Simulated assay, not measured.
Amino acid sequence: MTWVPPPRPRPPAPAPAPAPVSPRRESRGRLGRLDAKVSPYLYIAPFFLLFLVTGLFPLFYTGWVAMHDWDQIMGKGEFVGMANFVDVLTGRGFWRALANTVSIFLLSSVPQILAALLIAALLDRNLRAKTLWRMGVLLPYVVAPVAVALIFSNLFADRFGLINALLETVGIEPVRWHSDRLASHIAIATMVNFRWTGYNALILLAAMQAVPKDLYEQASIDGASAWRQFWSVTVPMLRPTIIFVIITSTIGGLQIFDEPKMYDQFGRGGADQQWQTLTIYLYELGWTRADFGMASAVAVLLFLVIVVFGIVNFLLTRHIAHDEGKRS
C-alpha cells in the first residue's frame, strides 16, 4: 500500500479591498456625528443663556453692590467689604422684619397646605359639576394681588371692618387688626391663604388622580375606612408633590411683598413696622433711603435665609420618609 501525502492547505483568499469612500460621504458622516453630539447642547442653550442673564448675573451683581457704598444719586462709591452686612445685622430693623416674615410665613403656609390637601381630597370624589368646582377654587388666584389686599384691608379695618362687625354680633370685642402685631399677621396670612390655597389644591389634585386605583380597592378589601385610605394610601403617594408644594410656598412666603405693602395706605409695614417684612425693609432701604448697598446686603441675606429654610425642609422630609420606610 502506497503512502499518499495529505493535500496542502490553500492559503486564505485575500480580503477584498474596501470601496473607496467619497470625500462628500465622509464629510457628511462627520457632520452627522458632530450633530448628534452638539445638537442636544444647542437645544438647551437658550435656557442657560436666559438664566445667566436674568438669574445668575443679577445674583452676583447684587453681591458685588452689597460690598460697596452705593448711593442712588452718586452711584458707585468706595469698596466697604462686609460693612453693609455688619450694619444690617447689628440693626434692629432687619431682625424685626425677619421675625415678621417668619411669623406671616408660618401662619399662611401651614394652614394653606392642610386646607389645599383637604380641598383636593374633596374634589377628587365623584361630585356633580366637578369641572365647575375645580375652576372655582382657582378664581382667587386669578384676582390681582392689589385688589385682594385692598378688599381684605377694608374687611379687617379697625373701626368699620366687616370682620369686627361680625365679632360684635357674637359678643366679642373688636380686634385692632392694624395696630396689634399678631392680629395684623393673621389678617395678612388670610389674604395669602385666600389667593394660593386653590392653586396648591389643583396641584395636589393632579397628583391624587395619578394614584393607582388598585391600591384603594386593596385597602377597602382589607377593611380600611375612607380616612384610613386617605392617610395610609393617598398621603404617602403624594409625598413628592407635597414636598414640592412646601418648597414653593416657603420661597413665596419668605418673599411676600404685595399683601403687606397694600395692607394700609402708607405701605411701610405699619406705624411701628409691626408687619414690615424683609422685602418691604429692602424696598425702604433702596428707594426711600437710597442706600443700594445696604438694600443689596438685605437681598443677599434674604437669599441665604431662603436657602436655609429649603435645606431644613429637605432634611425634615427625608427624615420622615426614612422613618416611614423603616416602619414599613
Rank of each mutant, 00 (worst) to 15 (best):
Val110Pro: 10
Leu150Lys: 08
Val110Tyr: 11
Leu155Pro: 02
Phe152Asp: 01
Val143Trp: 00
Trp177Thr: 03
Gly93Val: 03
Gly91Glu: 05
Thr131Asn: 13
Pro140Met: 01
Leu166Cys: 07
Phe152Asn: 01
Leu114Arg: 08
Asn154Cys: 06
Leu123Cys: 08
Leu138Met: 15
Phe160Cys: 04
Lys130Phe: 04
Val142Asn: 03
Asn100Thr: 14
Phe105Asp: 06
Ile119Asn: 00
Asp124Met: 06
Phe152Gly: 01
Val175Tyr: 11
Val102Ala: 15
Leu122Phe: 00
Leu138Gly: 03
Ala121Thr: 03
Ala129Ile: 13
Arg128Asn: 07
Leu166Lys: 03
Arg96Phe: 09
Leu114Glu: 02
Val137Pro: 00
Val143Asn: 00
Arg96Ser: 11
Arg96Thr: 12
Ile113Asn: 04
Val170Gln: 08
Ala120Ser: 14
Ile113His: 04
Asp158Tyr: 05
Glu168Ser: 13
Leu150Trp: 08
Pro174Arg: 09
Asn164Ala: 08
Thr169Ile: 13
Gly171Asp: 08
Ile119Cys: 02
Ala99Arg: 15
His178Asp: 05
Ala97Ser: 14
Leu114Gln: 04
Asn100Val: 13
Leu122Tyr: 00
Val110Ala: 14
Val142Glu: 03
Arg92Lys: 06
Arg125Cys: 05
Ile163Trp: 03
Val175Thr: 15
Arg159Gln: 14
Ala144Gln: 09
Arg134Cys: 03
Thr101Ile: 13
Ala129Gln: 08
Leu166Arg: 06
Val146Thr: 13
Leu132Trp: 11
Gly136Tyr: 00
Ile163Asp: 03
Leu155Val: 11
Phe105Ser: 14
Leu117Glu: 03
